[in-house]
Amino acid sequence: MDGLKVKGKVWRFGDDINTDVIIPGKYKFKTLDMKELAKHAMEGVDQDFSRKVSRGDLIVAGKNFGCGSSREQAPRVLKEAGVSAVVAVSFARIFFRNAINVGLPVIECKDAVKETDEGDLVEIDLEKGMLKNLAKNRVYMFKPIPPPLLEILRVGGLVEYLKQYGTYKV
């Protein structure tokens, strides 16, 4: 992430992508090594995802992304695998919070999801709430992430945020 902007190639997924398919429980109970766990990112829906994804790529998915368990390993392995942001129609709430807390931008933008295809090059400005699909030459506006949460993202996650501020500034 360059400041509050991200740019990358899109991987498309459908509705209700749950945390068990993002990172299966059988791996996550054994280690905290995210590099190791990231080899299994999205394994439940795409066996080869971790080999195909490049640093900076984005996930664009349907509704209720990240539903299911509270495992923070889910956004962590996506980030570790190289994913720079997830754009979806909607997110499950624990995943949404976890993603912000580990410094993975999450954006709700229904129109962009509808018109974005796999492989499209996309650029996002989190502060402005703007998503550009460079492949299709389309621009979408989305409701920006609330400022206190944007600040957590800006500093790189909740650990860094609390190191800097000591407590929540809500």
Binding site: S70, E72, N101, V170
Partner: peptide, 18 residues
Amino acid sequence: TGIGSTEMAAVFKTGKLW
């Protein structure tokens, strides 16, 4: 309600959550 691990760490530290 359910929360993630890093938020839980923040609760361990401060006893508070947003």
